[in-house]
């Protein structure tokens, strides 16, 4: 096992539509940071060397260029304003404030709990079945109401999220107990999942494959183990998967889905 532990650096693969924009901003910022640091550092080292105490030399009392010090302040300020206007606000708006049109995307409900991710797919009818906290049990982790006709074709998975490639997925997220945070590093996105509140996260995967969902908010003992998978598949594969799930559900109503990973048994805080 330990042989896998590496000394990588940089950013992981970018696998969502907006990941490259974020990476661009990330590298731009770091390039400028390094530039500022190096420029400052050179001057710093030069001063230390040039102005070290030497016999017979006195320090200068009157120092010219008081106003020169405002130049770097001004430059940094101008740069930051440009960044805010050109990237900060638009990128944020595009990713967090706007959602892709629902008819061109797939919506999935996420109900997080200590220490698992439950996903609810609306199924072919496109409607989510009602959820009711009173119905929550170990077998029915999200409290799906079986009396609601819309819930008949809903697919619920634990810790596994299958999504079609190239099509936006909108996650409507909430938590049963404490705050969790949904992160998939390859998508460069993250959002807290808060009890009593619905938060939203969307992503459009661009590279098929398996990615890991990590929990990024301390949520108790199992925080470190609260992981899941995103399977980015082609639309066909995805449709096939959904059919399979549905068949399985309708065939074996009442029993827990055998293929799903059961949440960590320990639910202490």
């Amino acid at each position: 096992m330990s042989q896998d532990w590496g000394y990588q650096w940089g950013l992981p693969t970018a696998a969502s539509s907006y990941a490259s924009d974020i990476d661009w901003l990330m590298w731009l910022l770091h390039a400028v940071m390094i530039f500022i640091f190096v420029a400052w550092g050179i001057f710093f080292v030069y001063c230390l060397f040039r102005y070290r105490a030497r016999d017979g030399e006195r320090a200068v009392y009157h120092q010219a260029g008081e106003s020169a010090s405002f130049i770097p302040d001004g430059l940094v300020l101008a740069f930051e304003i440009w960044l805010i206007l050109a990237f900060g606000i638009p990128l944020w708006a595009a990713i967090k404030q706007e959602t892709p049109p629902p008819d061109e995307s797939m919506t999935v409900n996420l109900v997080a709990q200590q220490f698992a991710w439950n996903f609810q797919y609306p199924g072919p009818d496109g409607k989510f079945g009602r959820r009711n906290v009173a119905l929550v049990t170990a077998e029915n982790p999200i409290g799906l109401d079986p009396d609601d006709p819309a819930s008949k074709d809903d697919v619920v998975t634990i810790n596994n999220l299958n999504v079609p490639n190239g099509k936006p997925t909108i996650l409507r997220m909430t938590s049963k107990d404490v705050i969790h945070s949904f992160q998939v590093t390859e998508f460069r996105n993250k959002q807290d999942v808060v009890p009593g509140l619905e938060t939203m996260l969307w992503f459009e995967p661009t590279v098929a494959g398996k990615y890991e969902i990590g929990c990024a908010q301390l949520c108790g003992l199992g925080h470190t183990k609260m992981v899941g998978n995103v399977f980015v598949q082609s639309q066909d594969e995805f449709d096939g998967w959904q059919k399979e799930q549905l068949a399985e559900k309708l065939g074996t109503t009442g029993t827990a889905d055998a293929r799903t990973v059961t949440p960590a048994a320990d639910s202490r805080s």
């Binding site: 996105n189 993250k190 990024a216 908010q217």
Partner: peptide, 11 residues
């Protein structure tokens, strides 16, 4: 910057 913080937050 909020957009980059999306990736870096809580890491």
């Amino acid at each position: 910057f909020a957009p980059t913080d999306m990736h870096l937050h809580d890491t």
